[in-house]
């Protein structure tokens, strides 16, 4: 503490100065919008950024790969079970099909299933959950009891049942996985709607005369969208995982169509011979899952305002 001893002061030190409320209220810390701030935090997360690049790469491969290497169905009985070489970069399978072309095609199919199922589940979930939360009362009660019961039924059991009953194919797979996938999303959306419905800031804007549309666009969407995007990101690898699992027990995508799951399964059939047939598609599944999960984690941390220090 400075004691009042020999302080040298300027002649005009004691001149009056008007008070400066604006200065006292000026924000010293940089103020950022929600999305800019989230993006800044995401950019700082190196792992998440690497994963984002990887996901982008996989997406490019899934879209452009099969165009460049379209011969994923062509048999070549002269050259079966060939180890990877300069012609067949990932080797060939039991019918001499080029594994590289098949992995590219498999990536397209697996990602297509992953994204489609996630989007369908999301749409159903948003409509169902949003309606339930918005309507409230006994309708909400009833709708949520139904979800409670559906969630208690093990997903895999319903999935397998549906796939056994319906005609096999990618369409059936997508349908079956969407049927089991939406309940979690519905719960999440309803929770968000309820939370925001009761939040003080919404009450304030209601008192100020904001209409339903305004409340939905200005409060509900910006608050819920972060969590929903994260959930979507986490859902895609889950679906790819399930497809691989189903392929493994013989209910997934059928040969000669390719998916990462059925390629890995075909490789496992040959195990422990022709290891490249198993480990290459398995590695693609694993790294893609890793990338989605890690990016999802990073995104969640970046979007959660509570993480802001």
């Amino acid at each position: 503490m400075i004691m009042e001893a020999n302080l040298k002061l300027a002649a005009d030190a004691f001149e009056r100065v008007p008070k400066d409320i604006a200065q006292s209220q000026a924000l010293v810390r940089p103020s950022l919008t929600y999305w800019k701030d989230a993006w800044r935090r995401l950019k700082k997360n190196k792992v998440a950024m690497v994963c984002l690049v990887f996901i982008g790469l996989i997406a490019v491969i899934a879209i452009a790969g099969p165009i460049a290497f379209p011969n994923y169905r062509a048999n070549n009985l002269e050259k079966t079970f060939a180890e990877p070489d300069s012609v067949n970069w990932f080797g060939t399978d039991d019918l001499g099909r080029d594994q590289f072309a098949r992995v590219l095609r498999g990536g397209r199919v697996s990602l297509f299933i992953g994204v489609t199922v996630s989007l369908i589940s999301l749409t159903i979930g948003i409509i169902y959950g949003g309606l339930s939360g918005y309507l409230g009362g006994w309708v909400d009660d009833l709708m949520m009891r139904i979800v409670d019961i559906l969630i208690t039924i093990p997903d895999m059991v319903i999935l397998i049942l549906l796939l056994v009953v319906l005609d096999p194919g990618i369409g059936t797979l997508i349908l079956a996985m969407s049927v089991t996938g939406w309940t979690g999303m519905a719960r999440l959306v309803r929770g968000q709607v309820l939370q925001i419905k009761e939040a003080d800031f919404v009450l304030v804007s209601k008192v100020l005369g904001a209409g339903t549309f305004r409340i939905i666009t200005r409060h509900l969407v910006p608050n819920a969208i972060g969590i929903i995007i994260v959930r979507l990101m986490m859902s895609i690898p889950g679906v790819i995982f399930s497809e691989a699992f189903l392929s493994y027990i013989g209910l997934g995508v059928r040969v000669p169509e390719a998916s990462w799951g059925n390629l890995a399964e075909a490789g496992a059939q040959q195990f422990p011979n022709h290891l490249y047939m198993f480990f290459i598609p398995a590695a693609f599944i694993m790294f893609t899952m890793l990338a989605f999960n890690l990016f999802g984690d990073g995104l969640r941390d970046a979007l959660d305002p509570k993480m802001r220090k």
């Binding site: 400075i2 004691m3 009056r16 008070k19 400066d20 200065q23 006292s24």
Partner: peptide
């Protein structure tokens, strides 16, 4: 407190006041 003070003087903005 200088910015919110009704009796603010020049010195208040630049130097920490001593204990009196």
């Amino acid at each position: 407190f200088a910015d919110r003070c009704d009796w603010c003087m020049k010195v208040c903005k630049t130097d920490m006041p001593p204990l009196h």
